[in-house]
Amino acid sequence: MKKILLAFDGTHFSNGAFEFARWLNETEPVLVTGAFLPQAQAANMWSYADGMSGPMFVPLVEERDTEVMKANISKFETLCRKHNIEYRVHEDTFDFALPELKAETRFADVLIIGSEVFYENLGGKLNDYLHDVLHKAECPVIVVPENYAFPKTNVLCYDGSDSSVYAIKQFAYIFPELAKQPTMLVYIHKDGTNNLPQQVNIEELTARHFSDLTLMKLDMSADKHFGTWMNNREAAMLVAGSFGRSALSELVRKSLVKDVITEHKLPVFIAHR
């Protein structure tokens, strides 16, 4: 049984994120922990947990927002009982900020967040707040739009880097049931080369975990066109990595994955070391 961490902006309930957790539970029973955060008002709320100087800042939750959060928690509990999902709600979530969310991710298999509702108050953009969540989370993150088809295929984004291989392995380890679906390993060209890096090794690895596997090389300009190519695929999930903890995700900073997330059409699985 997997532990799924489901994070909500406390005043906005993401039905898309919950439905994805429900779908996973139908595939294989999971434990879902609901985390209800105060409204995101700053991009640097991780900082006080990282030992930075200066006063500790935790966003205040107005009385009205507190009532909305309580209603959303009640909705979450009702839906979990309705769909026979084992669940937890941590009682201290009214004081939640990003450092607490980071600590929660350390003890979860995967974090699910809604790409639209969770960031509604920040203009619906792939902003620094989302960058921080993706970068600081200590487990893989699934970013889910509100309206989508449950994935029937997987697209593994491979560029030869260790981080892309790491993401592929994490996806296979955590979701072996989804690895049985038709899967495409997409190689993103770099420096004009048409050679698949470590082709024998990546084929040996992925073929062990993905029983219906196809390899594909894209000769398009990935930075400009990959998002469009990906978003035209129906009922798919994108699996992507990042380049370590020393900087924000290179894949997210570029349009390679950002375009897929901001179009709000497909779920995206992101993992980094």
Rank of each mutant, 00 (worst) to 15 (best):
M1W: 10
I4C: 00
A7L: 05
D9W: 00
S14A: 09
E19H: 10
E26K: 10
E28T: 07
P29S: 09
L31I: 07
G34M: 04
F36P: 02
A40H: 01
Q41E: 09
Q41F: 04
A42D: 07
A43T: 05
N44T: 07
S47Y: 01
D50Y: 13
G51T: 05
G54E: 08
M56Q: 11
F57R: 12
V61D: 05
E63V: 06
E63D: 11
E63C: 07
D65R: 08
T66Q: 12
E67K: 13
E67M: 13
V68F: 02
M69S: 02
K70M: 04
S74E: 14
K75E: 07
K75R: 13
L79C: 03
L79Y: 02
C80S: 00
K82C: 01
N84V: 01
N84D: 04
I85T: 01
E86T: 06
E86M: 08
Y87E: 00
H90C: 08
H90Y: 11
E91C: 00
D92T: 06
P99Y: 00
K102W: 00
K102R: 12
A103S: 15
R106S: 14
V110E: 00
L111E: 07
I113R: 13
G114L: 08
E116D: 15
Y119V: 14
N121S: 13
G124P: 00
G124Q: 14
L126F: 03
L126E: 07
D128V: 09
L130N: 10
H131P: 00
A137E: 03
P145E: 13
N147H: 06
A149T: 05
P151F: 04
T153E: 09
T153V: 04
N154C: 04
C157H: 11
C157R: 03
Y158S: 01
S161E: 09
S163T: 10
V165Y: 05
V165F: 07
V165P: 02
Y166I: 00
A167C: 07
I168Q: 09
F171G: 02
A172C: 11
F175S: 03
F175V: 06
F175Y: 11
A179S: 15
K180S: 12
T183F: 06
Y187C: 07
N194Y: 01
N194D: 13
N195C: 09
N195R: 01
L196C: 03
N201I: 09
E203K: 14
A207P: 02
L213T: 05
L215Q: 09
K217C: 10
K217Q: 10
K217G: 03
S221E: 06
D223S: 09
H225I: 07
H225P: 04
N231D: 06
N231W: 08
N232R: 15
M237W: 12
V239M: 08
G241K: 09
G241A: 14
G241R: 11
S242V: 07
R245L: 11
A247Q: 15
L248E: 13
E250W: 09
L251K: 13
V252N: 15
V252K: 11
S255I: 02
S255R: 13
L256T: 14
K258I: 08
V260M: 12
I261W: 05
I261A: 14
T262A: 12
E263H: 12
K265M: 11
K265L: 14
P267I: 06
P267R: 14
P267W: 09
I270P: 04
A271L: 01
